[in-house]
Amino acid sequence: MKVKRRQRNRVIPPGCDHEPVKPGHDQSSHAVRMEWGPTGAAAVAADVTVVVDVLSFTTTVSVAVERGITVLPFRWRDERAASYAAERDAVLAVGRLEAREQAGTVSLSPAAMAQVEGITRIVLPSPNGSTISFALADGGSEVVAGSLRNASAVSAYVAARMREGASCAVVPAGERWDDDTLRPAVEDLWGAGAVLAGLVDLGVTGLSPEARVAEQAFRAVRADLAAALAGCAGGVELAAAGFAEDVEAAARLDVSGVVPVLVGEAFVDRGR
């Protein structure tokens, strides 16, 4: 599938007063791009961007949307999130460990989200996934929440948009080291690769070399995906903290047909 290559205005990361992208790093000669984290997302800005945070944000978004819950992402995980939720008549989700200490709260855990009843609107604070999503949306990109659970549905949606002439970027969110530098997380590479492999299988061409690496990384572990996710650093960390069910929930490939697209403040299902 050949598509018209269009270039979105790049999003300047917080703290930058100029465009920091060097020649080639925007991958603009390719219709399908891949780069890491908020700075990478800004560099490879495209018409449609799939954000992937497998062991937290986007998997939880997909589970919530599956259950008919309107998800309002929020950049900060502090007192501002509580005010934001109250103003929008929504329930604020708290961190996994906080939920253990606060009975009756809704957790950012995807396994816990699958058990939520009687809630229609929820605020999901996330310094990674939400920050990337809002920055991209502010720059004019259509933002999609992708995960292993809904990878094929997201691929089908993006492929349709590309047939209309859109360019695409897939952004694995990654994690943070203690010094706040980006830690590329292999589970997010696999999640991004699952979406990219789906695009290739649907006939999409024009992947950048970076996108090809993610695609091939996913294909390499697909046959034993659950074990790979459980054995990676992020999976081991969650299991050690008592959240092995979250790893299992995140590893369920293509169990969902939802396509959460950020429309205004909320993720809305655009799946067919």
Rank of each mutant, 00 (worst) to 15 (best):
Ala45Met: 12
Pro13Asp: 09
Arg10Met: 09
Ala153Trp: 10
Pro127Asp: 10
Val54Pro: 10
Glu66Met: 02
Ala197Gly: 05
Ala156Ser: 15
Ile132Met: 05
Val268Asp: 08
Gly104Gln: 05
Gly257Ile: 00
Arg272Asp: 15
Ser141Leu: 06
Arg149Cys: 08
Ala197Pro: 06
Gly37Met: 04
Gly104Leu: 02
Arg161Trp: 08
Arg75Trp: 01
Ala41Asp: 11
Val255Gln: 11
Ser130Tyr: 01
Asp53Gly: 03
Ala266Leu: 09
Arg96Ser: 01
Phe218Tyr: 14
Gln102Ala: 10
Leu92Gln: 06
Phe134Trp: 15
Val236Ser: 04
Leu182Asn: 04
Asp138Ser: 13
Ser107Gly: 05
Arg33Glu: 11
Ala160Cys: 07
Arg96Ala: 09
Gly174Tyr: 01
Ala137Val: 08
Gln7Tyr: 01
Met1Pro: 09
Leu182Lys: 05
Arg10Ser: 07
Gly242Met: 02
Ala31Thr: 13
Thr131Leu: 12
Val171Asp: 00
Gly231Lys: 04
Ala266Ser: 15
Ser167Gly: 13
Thr58Glu: 09
Thr59Phe: 06
Glu101Asp: 14
Met113Arg: 08
Gly242Gln: 06
Ala194Pro: 12
Pro73Phe: 06
Ala145Thr: 03
Ala249Ser: 10
Tyr157Ser: 02
Arg33Asp: 06
Trp36Lys: 10
Ala114Glu: 08
Pro110Ser: 05
Trp36Gln: 09
Thr120Ser: 15
Gly24Asp: 02
Met162Asn: 10
Val258Trp: 00
Ala159Val: 01
Ile119Trp: 02
Gly140Ile: 00
Leu108Gly: 07
Glu237Gly: 03
Asp246Trp: 01
Trp76Pro: 06
Phe267Pro: 09
Gly139Ala: 01
Val91Phe: 03
Val221Trp: 06
